[in-house]
Amino acid sequence: MVQPQPQSVAYRQIPKLEQPQRIAEGFLLTDLEQVWSWRKSIYRSLFVVIWNIIAFVYLVSGVRNVATDRGAIITIVISGLLALGGLMMLAKLIIQILLASRFFPGELVVSRFPLRLGEASQVRYRRRLRRGQTQKPAQISAQLVCYEWIRCQQGTDVQAFTQKIWEQALPVQAVPVGISKLEYEGQIQIPRQGTPSFEANDNCICWELQVAVDLPGLLIDASTFRLRVVPEVVA
């Protein structure tokens, strides 16, 4: 039997489990990564701009000197890689800004919170457009996943890994044209033999509902909602 390999992940901090807001329909969770923050955006933009300036200054200077200095090739390779990374960060930042300007953050309403082992819950995802309506049909898919997350020190580097241990794919739903709010409804089921949520500094067991929206020409994005599963099995 082939043992699944853990996936190395870029994030060093596990997203904190937020306490949901109690509303009439149930419990409201918001994808905090999609909440617009001027301060966070300015910091990110400054970081990306400074990164790119430094990378491109070294790249240009390497290209200028390559005719006279063979050692400049190393500078070109290293600064080229840094510049490529910088451009990718810039592209991601632009996409994030565009998404934030067109959509409100994704929200999820769950009928029960926290959840117990063996328990089913209705989930309702919604994401409103800031202006206008959808012009093309869209698709929304969702999956409930449970994964292990660990962080460890390897030499001087801190690394994080995840390992998916359970998943439930929910049916894909089509979104019609001419609407100003994307909506998705489904039912999740926590397995009886599953494991409850666990959160320590460097070791976690996380339950997440991941909702992916594919709106051609406008949005391909995913909202993630952390759920809490308590160590209690429904009768």
Binding site: Q3, E148, I150, T195, P231
Partner: peptide, 14 residues
């Protein structure tokens, strides 16, 4: 009641 349960997983054990 909120204590973690014993666990034997792929990346971690409790």
């Amino acid at each position: 009641t909120s204590a973690p349960v014993s666990y034997d997983g792929l990346l971690l054990r409790i």
